[in-house]
Design a protein around this nucleic acid. Structure first.
Lengths: 184, 184
DNA sequence: CTAAACTTTCAAAAATTACTGAAAGTTTAG
DNA sequence: CTAAACTTTCAGTAATTTTTGAAAGTTTAG
């Protein structure tokens, strides 16, 4: 499989960015190549295109499946497994958001909950405690908010995002109406 | 400086999470310790508390300053530099969001813009191009949205986040009113 | 200015993470 | 069932990242 210069640039860039996005170079390249390809790709093709070993392809594909970004596609009459992106770009973005929440926020939230729980029993209140509480509350807010957004349908979320800071206006609106006692 | 068991646990956890958050173990630990401390800390104290070398402290502090998460605090009559968190937790969260956007989204956005620009000239339109365009559009939307949110004041943003999926309702509201020709 | 007190730099070493490739495992056609 | 076709695992090796510590640099008190 020959990559066009643009595809090549795209794949290499994803490799370089990989580590910033929470995976390694190979995983980034695999993802780029699978996302950009119209047809599902098998291990042999990925191996050749990226000049990496069979084992590395296997591990990378496993990792991408754990992120729920690719899926195996079985073609009858062919023993090979082929892999394709799990859906459109929007869906993949949502999956990345969700997985990163699980990996980057949830563990810390869990630790802070534990630390704050036991210290509450101890009745000792100091500066550090207060800070931990603040961090806990912010992370909880962010985690819940991102779950909430994930439940919103694509169109609505897109509208919301396009609205940008304009959402401030809409909120004032809501407040004004609520004050008039018109809660819904 | 002796750390309480809770502080110890907190600092160690930030060390472990560090790499998932875009920096390394030492930087995570330094951040945790500085954030949790009521008073600014100097290199000697950090060195002793974390059992790391002077050079490592220096590099870690530089990194945290590049993230705009800590600031040097100069005490008259003392040659040492002391370091403190740059503000409250909310402010720090915003800074992390902003820096991560710069490091994780902007470079890809820039590459995609270039690739799409030149390919537009070439007039060749294929599947890969379309995908790149989709990724570009999503990243642009996210980048602009996060800039927008950053400009919102704390209270408003907090209200918005607490509203969570309920924001959907508010949007419908807006739509209904706009349809009636009541644009503001 | 000088020298003490402190910080930064950076080459070398240590630690960690990623990759290879051969062996083991799995699946399916016949 | 057997064997071919394919995938996964994992111990060893390679590559990368992090850390150290000594030398160079900077700042300020006197």
């Amino acid at each position: 499989m020959k990559m066009s210069p643009d595809t090549q640039a795209f794949v290499m860039h994803f490799g370089e960015m990989g580590s910033r996005w929470g995976f390694n170079r190979t995983v980034g390249q695999l993802l780029a190549l699978i996302v950009i390809s119209e047809n599902p790709l098998c291990a042999d093709e990925l191996m050749a295109a990226l000049s990496i070993s069979r084992g590395n392809v296997s591990m990378g594909l496993k990792e991408l499946q754990s992120w729920r970004l690719i899926k195996p596609v079985h073609t009858p009459g062919d023993r090979k497994e082929y892999y394709a992106a799990v859906g459109d770009i929007w869906t993949m973005g949502m999956r990345v958001l969700e997985e990163r929440r699980k990996r980057e926020i949830d563990p810390t939230l869990s630790l802070l909950r534990d630390l704050l729980m036991e210290s509450e029993a101890n009745e000792q209140s100091n500066y550090a405690q207060g800070r931990m509480q603040e961090i806990h509350d912010l992370l909880e807010l962010v985690a819940n908010w991102s779950s909430d957004l994930q439940r919103l349908n694509h169109d609505k979320l897109q509208t919301l995002m396009k609205l940008g800071a304009g959402v401030g206006k809409v909120l004032e609106f809501k407040d004004r109406l609520l004050k008039k006692g018109d809660g819904d």
